[in-house]
Design a protein around this nucleic acid. Structure first.
Lengths: 283, 283
DNA sequence: CCGGATCAATACCTGGAAGGTATCGTTGCC
DNA sequence: GGCAACGATACCTTCCAGGTATTGATCCGG
């Protein structure tokens, strides 16, 4: 299977219309029909059910659509990573690390310091972004390593090493009645009047329905908490970054949060390997 | 990048010799040279350093070798999964599940029973194989789901859900002095005279150096323990399958073993999704 | 029920690229 | 210094990707 055939098939499968697919691909319809036929013949499998009016995916076509998208993504990532590896060493970031703005600064600082002391250390670019972004950057080959937080972030498809585990706290406006308690439970915070838990975007960018404000990043969230419009359940390491007008109380039965260092499989370069080793030896 | 170009490059990178690579590819050397040049031109990156005597990989070439292999594997898996999805439903296994022969029969039986009760259940083929095999089958698209054991098996690159966690026991010949103890520690069993811990093969099929017999599967291992040539540290669920001539003693400080259900990303079919849901609801 | 519109398939042609053969230029080595 | 090994280059041929024109089937409005 050539990537060209896969691109053709994925496009047709997405459009379910040969004419539009051909237009998107910048070719005409007849060669596209032929290419799909040839692909079906070679696979020995019907991928599309076509009448002269409608096109639908067969079971096999559904499988190939998912697989094909993954392959095409992998090809693009391969190109990008290869190109980046070829840039002249001067000016090229040795490694790109992505993490959330809300991640523990302490852990990150310790990691960067320890790695910088390595004999073969290369410069590290740190990119801060939201959770959905991280995964995408890593998958697309624009970043080399990420610090992710289980169970919130999906680590599917990556190699990971656990770095640390911590409990969670609920972040409240200073002076809130709950802040005098030494600790609380999820039941205490899930239905606070006037202080709903916020909604985070799904991987596809949409928000789940429900009450609670929509937030994109941690700064927005803290702002909302300070304004008394929401409360937040966050890893306890965020306490060191809280302004005076916010308070945090441990939530005993909140799921533990594990910070992991993640990197794409198959691309464990010397630098990534060194960084991962440094990270795990910090533990 | 076309998969043909990737196949060419990966072959040359493996052989580090255009002539041999061309032979392996079933073409002649000149088109191969040209194809690699064209790939380099399009990527804007030198992949190989060639003198008229030697060929070596550049940094970018090393990256593309790793990435390219992954892409080619993904393409092959995509073909296989598509072909399997196209087989006539009769006779085709709905799902192929791989697990180790040593895995808990209880858990597996419960899972299969519970899934069979689902309204949309499809027949399940169970394949038993060694740990290294499992990963390969799943990655190559010959299997749909696997029961893996962390931290022994690598779950990198797969989606997983945790099913159960258990401690480990040391398996000894019946009558061994340690068998009278209610529990032991790793230190007690790591240096038992005449009963070394066995060596398992690495993913590449080689064995790490050291004392202890080489084993490929659990049956071999139990045989060796029964013969008094080794002892084994195994998940405690194996106790239900022990013959009379073997005894097991809990090892308090052995790492906990987590059984996870794993499946390849991007191919979460209806049947796999159902099975995973069934598995997690058993918990 | 008919004619037009829509859309995939087919027929046929052309240019370019993939692959082959022959040869050259460089380099290591006896 | 001459030979052998090996990648690059030159040149040719074949085949296939892609284009244009057309057919054939289906839906729809009148």
């Amino acid at each position: 299977m050539e990537t060209r055939e896969l691109r053709y098939f994925v496009t047709v499968a997405e459009e379910l219309h040969f004419g539009r697919a051909a237009q998107r691909l910048g070719i005409t319809q007849p060669p596209l029909s032929r290419a799909i036929h040839q692909l079906e013949r070679r696979l020995g499998a019907a991928l599309l059910d076509r009448t002269s009016r409608t096109v639908t995916l067969t079971e096999a076509g559904t499988v190939l659509l998912a697989e094909g998208r993954a392959v095409l993504e992998a090809v693009e990532a391969a190109e990008r990573r290869t190109r980046r590896a070829a840039l002249p060493p001067t000016g090229r970031p040795g490694l790109v690390l992505v993490t959330k703005a809300s991640a523990s600064r302490e852990l990150l600082a310790k990691l960067l310091d320890a790695y910088a002391a390595e004999p073969a250390a290369v410069p590290i670019d740190v990119t801060l972004c939201g959770p959905a972004e991280q995964e995408r950057l890593l998958r697309e080959g624009r970043a080399d390593v990420a610090l992710l937080h289980r169970p919130f972030d999906s680590t599917a498809g990556f190699h990971t090493e656990e770095l640390s585990t911590e409990g969670q706290v609920v972040v409240l406006p200073a002076g809130h009645p709950l802040t005098v308690r030494p600790h609380v439970h999820m039941a205490d915070v899930s239905g606070l009047p006037g202080l709903p838990l916020p909604r985070w975007p799904e991987p596809d960018g949409t928000y789940p329905p429900g009450p609670g404000p929509q937030v994109r990043d941690h700064a927005q969230l803290l702002q909302l908490v300070a304004l008394g419009r929401a409360c937040a359940v966050s890893p306890e390491s965020c306490r060191t970054q809280l302004p005076d007008d916010l308070a945090a109380v441990p939530v005993l039965d909140a799921p533990k949060v594990t910070t992991v260092i993640a990197w794409p499989p198959h691309s464990r370069s010397r630098a990534v390997a060194d960084l991962v080793r440094t990270a795990t030896s910090l533990r």
